[in-house]
Amino acid sequence: MQTLTQRLANPTRFMALSARVLPWLAGLAVVLLAAGLVMALASPLDYQQGHAAKIMYVHVPTAWLSIMGYMLVAVSSFGLLVFRHPLADVSAKAAAPIGAAFTFICLVTGSLWGKPMWGAFWVWDPRLTSVLILFFLYLGLISLRSSIEDEALAGKLTAVLSIVGIVIVPVIKFSVDWNSLHQPASVMRLGAPTIHASLLWPLLVMAGGMMALFGALHLKGMRNEILRRRVKALRTVEVEASAGLARQPAE
């Protein structure tokens, strides 16, 4: 008998399952994002910032997803190193660039929002600074993977790095907050701790849409990676066969 995890771990089963789930997830993303945008545009204007504050509906969900994406990479990495789950490396590899893209959108929208609010695109706001360093961590994962030829080794080393990263991320966050707290210059902070319900609903719908989008992109990325690995395996067999190296198991 196979456990559920083992059954899902089977790439063939994953391909069949994900093919069925993907259109629904992608559809859900489109519907939620469209609804969220309409709700966001209809929401009451901020009396200080006017329309500029509406960028929040894109900025805040991407900020959440930037850290969730990193956690997804770290959990997948843990699955690879500890359980040697065959899909874990595929998941970690697919999640990293998507997470980096969401982090980048978060940085760009945050900086666009900062311009009318602070008069400068970048004022070393502690939250944005933490996100910037998270972006560097993503770049590190992607570059380490791309600079090692042996793909299996690259996957495992990147997994070690992402686990080191997830351990240090809270310390980085803490240190950046500490830095702004103990700086003589007063730094304004983005976002309000209490948020009115008329602003919260559009935000939650947008966040749901962004999550569905992340999920759909991640599934698609994983499917692409599995197909790429199959093509590679077929080519290897072809090369071996033509070189007369097709091996039989030694008895």
Binding site: I133, F136, G140, L144, S147, I148, V160, L161, V164, I168
Partner: peptide
């Protein structure tokens, strides 16, 4: 240890490690 076998190890090392030195 992560970059010991990579091409362009030194530059990569800076990219990987500097963010971790922030705290």
């Amino acid at each position: 240890a992560l970059t010991v076998r990579t091409r362009r190890g030194g530059l990569l090392l800076a990219l990987l490690m500097l963010p971790l030195f922030v705290p």
